[in-house]
Amino acid sequence: MTLIFAHRGSAGTHPENTMSAFKEAARVGADGIETDVQLSKDGEVVIIHDEKLNRTTNASGFVKDRTLMELKTLNASNSYKGKMGNERIPTLEELLIWLKNNQLLCIIELKNTLFLYPGLEEKVIRLIRSYEMEERIIISSFNHYSLVDCHQLAPEIETAPLYRDGLFMPWIYAKAIGGSAIHPNIRVASDIIIQSSMCAGVPVRPYTINKESDMKRLYSLRCSAIITDFPGIAKRVREEFE
């Protein structure tokens, strides 16, 4: 069965990367969630996608220039213009505490391409281990040097490279850097790439799958998983397909 990961929670229906988006993903029956982490000015692991605050909050400037206390005063549902009230930027620890009460899997994307965030890998791994979530977490990133570091620090935690351009035999590349799966952009996830990777024992989880036609194609291939902004729709289409 193709697993459904809710991209930044149920980002198509709720403010992305907020607890309401994660809870909605659980409510509609997603198998897992995908989220993004960065470091605050005082070194706390916070959940937010953009390096800048402008798009998703009522503030401007960089995440890295605000302390956790300052970040917690912001409204993270800015893109919904008050339709869902105030949402706070969660910490990774808050998310892990919530995950302890369910069975969802979780992809954690390290947002460390624009800013390297020294110590991010160690802090994320320490939190995962402290909540005994090693078997349910997948660490992913466009920064593949960071994934190598994570694999060396915690070989028991799955890693998977994110990529948006075509790679030759990406399943071999993933294994070469200690990865266990690949997370390609849907544009470079052809049928043959998906099938060849899965045949090699390397799961494929393309992003961001929001069209029903793409969902049906991937379900027909028995693709390992999809990452979607609309987990509720993906669940309905999967049930109809089955």
Score class of each variant (00 low, 15 high):
Gly178Asn: 04
Met198Tyr: 05
Glu94Ser: 10
Gln103Gly: 11
Ile107Arg: 04
Arg205Tyr: 05
Ile139Met: 14
Cys199Asn: 14
Ile125Cys: 02
Cys223Arg: 03
Met215Val: 08
Ile186Arg: 06
Gly179Pro: 13
Glu135Gly: 00
Glu93Gly: 09
Asn102Gly: 09
Leu218Ala: 05
Ile227Thr: 14
Ile128Tyr: 03
Lys175Gln: 14
Phe142Thr: 05
Pro206Gly: 06
Ala176His: 06
Pro118Gln: 07
His144Ser: 11
Lys100Met: 10
Leu167Pro: 00
Ile139Glu: 01
Leu116Ala: 08
Pro170Met: 03
Gly179Asp: 13
Tyr173Gly: 01
Ile125Thr: 01
Arg187Met: 11
Arg129Phe: 02
Ile138Trp: 13
Ala174Phe: 09
Gly166Phe: 11
Phe168Pro: 01
Ile227Glu: 06
Leu116Lys: 12
Met133Cys: 13
Ile192Gln: 14
Val148Ala: 14
Glu109Pro: 09
Ser197Met: 08
Ser197Leu: 05
Ile193Met: 15
Ala160Ser: 15
Tyr131Ile: 06
Leu96Val: 01
Pro161Tyr: 10
Leu218Asn: 05
Met169Ser: 08
Ser196Phe: 01
Leu104Arg: 09
Glu158Lys: 15
Lys175Asn: 07
Arg136Asn: 14
Ser146Ala: 15
Ile177Gln: 09
Ile186Trp: 03
Val188Glu: 02
Asn101Gln: 15
Pro155Ile: 08
Val148Trp: 10
Gln103Pro: 02
Gly119Glu: 10
Met215Tyr: 12
Tyr145Met: 14
Asp214Asn: 15
Asp191Gln: 13
Thr208Met: 09
Ser220Arg: 15
Ile177Trp: 10
Ser141Asp: 11
Ala174Cys: 07
Asp214Met: 10
Leu110Tyr: 08
Glu156Thr: 02
Lys216Ala: 05
Leu110Ile: 13
Leu105Met: 15
Ile138Lys: 07
Met198Trp: 06
Asn112Pro: 07
Lys123Asn: 02
Leu120Phe: 12
Glu122Trp: 07
Ala174Pro: 08
Ala189Pro: 09
Arg222Pro: 00
Arg164Cys: 04
Tyr173Thr: 00
Ala225Tyr: 07
Ala154His: 06
Glu158Met: 14
Arg126Pro: 00
Pro206Ile: 05
Leu99Lys: 02
Ile125Glu: 03
Ala154Tyr: 05
Val188Asn: 01
Pro203Val: 12
Met198Arg: 04
Leu96Tyr: 13
Ser146Asn: 10
Tyr131Val: 05
Leu167Gln: 09
Glu94Trp: 11
Gly178Phe: 07
Pro184Ile: 00
Cys223Trp: 07
Asn143Met: 12
Ser146Cys: 12
Thr208Glu: 09
Leu96Thr: 00
Cys150Phe: 06
Arg129Gln: 12
Ser213His: 11
Phe168Lys: 12
Leu96Ala: 04
Ser213Ala: 15
Tyr207Asp: 00
Phe115Tyr: 15
Pro203Thr: 09
Glu94Pro: 09
Met133Asn: 06
Trp98Val: 00
Val204Cys: 10
Asp191His: 08
Cys223Gln: 03
Lys111Met: 13
Ile193Phe: 04
Pro161Lys: 09
Pro203Gly: 10
Ser180His: 12
Leu95Ser: 06
Leu120Ala: 09
